[in-house]
Amino acid sequence: MNYTLNQLQIFLKIVETKSITKASELLFLTQPAVSIQLKNLQNQFEIPLTEVIGRQLYITPFGEEIAEASRRILKEVNAMKHKTMDYKGFLTGQLNIAVVSTGKYVMPYFLSGFLQKHVGVDLKMDVTNRFKVLESLEQNKIDFALVSVMPDNLEVERIALMQNKLFLVGNKAHAKNLYNKKFDFILKNLPLIYREKGSATRKAMEDYLSTRQITTKKKLQLSTNEAVKQAVIAGLGYSIMPLIGIKNELQDNELHIIEAKGLPITSSWNLIWLKGKKFMPTATAFIDYIQDQKDTIISENFKWLENYEFY
């Protein structure tokens, strides 16, 4: 057999998500790339690893056994790597982080320098909605979480990283027709596109509309920030979205920010962890790194957020 460690890692992510699309998003790969690696792994076996019924992907019983074997293999490989690095005197271990969906535009910049400095440190970063992020934190499955809305039911400590601003956006061509429309008309009469329940962006959007007693006539719900963005670009409706995730689309004139009362909604990105958590050396070193390098990272990568002008 000629399967690779990369194929096993990709297969495990498919098993975890039950979806090639979701696996590709979490691995920052294209769907075709993930599909090809799954096919290459499948070619090593005469028995199916997965099956598709209707539009849903399922893992076969044989696939579950291969997934369990893959976990053991990758665990041993990581153990060998860490032992080697230990002998060389390097910091080793795994950093476990859960990030809300739009945090994927933020967190990599705060990780890059740390991982380059400590080559013996592995990273496991789950990108999902706020509900699942906080669930992982509450169950102590992760070291850190990145959120834009602080939990009200957990005792946590935090490092405030940077501002998060949300604006009302629309398709460039459609938005031009709204210049002479009143604010209430925009939000009450046009279709609004929401993230799924459990999303921090959805919560911010619902809170904003609720405080202004605005009821929308038509709602669309999509499961990812990227899906919402593409729907708005296609002209399906309007949405309140984080500026951090639409920079390129604004520059390419695919999206347009619509001036509205009470916007932008401003919060902050926070790196949080359970109060009293006993950290391994890897996590402790990461906190030290963030506290020391935070301002530099923000200045080098996110200065445009503070200075962005859209009028």
Rank of each mutant, 00 (worst) to 15 (best):
L134D: 10
T266G: 06
S35A: 14
T296G: 06
T4Q: 06
A173Q: 12
P32W: 07
E65W: 01
P264T: 00
Y194H: 09
K217W: 02
I298M: 04
I287C: 10
G54E: 09
F110Q: 06
K182F: 14
Q9I: 06
T17A: 07
G198W: 02
Q9V: 08
T4S: 15
M107C: 02
V228T: 00
K197P: 03
K117L: 15
Y3L: 10
L255A: 00
V232C: 03
K124D: 08
T30N: 12
M1Y: 05
I14S: 05
I297R: 03
Q7W: 11
K188Y: 00
K217Y: 02
Q94S: 15
M150Q: 01
L154N: 02
R212S: 04
V147R: 01
K218F: 02
F45C: 00
Q163H: 07
K261W: 06
N43T: 09
A260R: 01
E206Y: 08
G235I: 07
I193W: 03
F167L: 07
S299W: 02
M85N: 11
I10L: 15
V147T: 04
L190F: 15
I287H: 04
H118F: 13
E65G: 01
K165C: 13
K141S: 08
A69P: 01
N40K: 12
I290P: 11
L146H: 06
K182H: 10
I142N: 08
Q213I: 02
Y3C: 02
G63Q: 08
L236M: 09
Q230F: 05
M80V: 04
K81P: 06
E46K: 14
Y238E: 05
D122F: 07
I244R: 11
D295S: 04
T266L: 14
W269K: 05
T17E: 15
N270L: 03
F310D: 01
W269P: 07
